[in-house]
């Protein structure tokens, strides 16, 4: 059995990279991929933690939920991206500053 610590370290690193992508990249599609990576990091943690669990499989079930939620998220996000692109003509987050006060 692989130590849970290792899974957690991998998850943490993946999460860090995903977060960095979300924070740094300008293209919305990259941000979306970063979110997928973050979700995957969470999944790795869950699966790693439920290695010894042969009865309830809670971690695996949670991961399954995460996967489904990720799929939903991707669908909605892409629909929004398409609308965004239609309206704003760009997928660059630097150009989308409508939330700014002035």
């Amino acid at each position: 059995m692989i130590p849970i610590t290792l899974y957690f370290i991998v998850g943490a690193v993946l999460f860090a990279i995903g977060t960095t992508i979300v924070l740094v990249r300008r293209n919305v599609l990259f941000v979306l991929m970063g979110i997928e990576l973050i979700l995957n990091a969470a999944s790795i943690n869950f699966v790693g933690a439920s290695q010894g669990d042969y009865i309830k499989l809670s971690g695996q079930m949670m991961t399954l939920l995460i996967i489904v939620i990720a799929a939903c998220e991707a669908v909605v996000a892409l629909a929004i991206i398409m609308v965004l692109f239609k309206k704003a003509g760009s997928v660059d987050l630097m150009e989308l500053k409508k939330l700014k006060e002035f």
Binding site: L32, M33, M82
Partner: peptide
């Protein structure tokens, strides 16, 4: 993971790439 992420999410992302 393979079916949903690669068969679903990734293909969707590709469509997004193509569309934008």
């Amino acid at each position: 993971q393979i079916i949903v992420y690669i068969g679903g999410v990734l293909v969707l992302t590709l469509f997004g790439v193509m569309y934008t």
